[in-house]
Amino acid sequence: MKIFKSKDPTEEDLIKRAIAGKRDAQHLLYQTYAGKMLAVSKRYARTDFEAEDMLQDAFVKVFLYLKGFKGDCPLEFWIKRIVINTALKHQRSNRHLMVTEHEEEWDEASEKDSVDSQLGYEELLQLVRELPPRYQAVFNLYAIEGFSHKEIGEMLDITESTSKSQYSRARASLRQALLRINQQYHEKVTG
């Protein structure tokens, strides 16, 4: 255990030491990425507590499997992928808690449809969390993380077309929610 250091270690050094099981190096890596990764897990969770559980499980995996990190991508991407996979696993294990979606209530909107909004992070996060879990995952994976529908299908064990369909519905739901918020705001302003 190196307690004294003359300069900040590089990420490569930290990784090596973390692989060797040095808790101080692991803690430094954790401190570097935990904030960003908690933001990621919050998008997939229904509550903040669930997001924290996901983050905890993910970081345990990160340190257990860090030896498998080849360095062919930034460490942040590698950790993020683990966080996402852990979140999806959490969702699968909580499948029995998933509510039945009322798909017919939503109009499928074209991708060209635009909407006006300047909602903050917390409001947007709340809107995503209100989606059914599977739609929440598909929307996050496609719109935010940038995975293709084919990749999403493999990750969620669904077909590509199902992913497209669910994404479309998720998007329509969010668009309706944004429009509804806008409308409520206008009504409030105009009296």
Binding site: E111, S114, S117, Q118, L119, A143, I144, Y185
Partner: peptide, 19 residues
């Protein structure tokens, strides 16, 4: 955090808003 829609940028897609 919420601003008036009148001040909003127009024409953002749903993806852009969340991203």
């Amino acid at each position: 955090m919420k601003k008036s829609p009148a001040e909003d940028k127009k024409g953002q897609s749903v993806e852009d808003i969340f991203r």
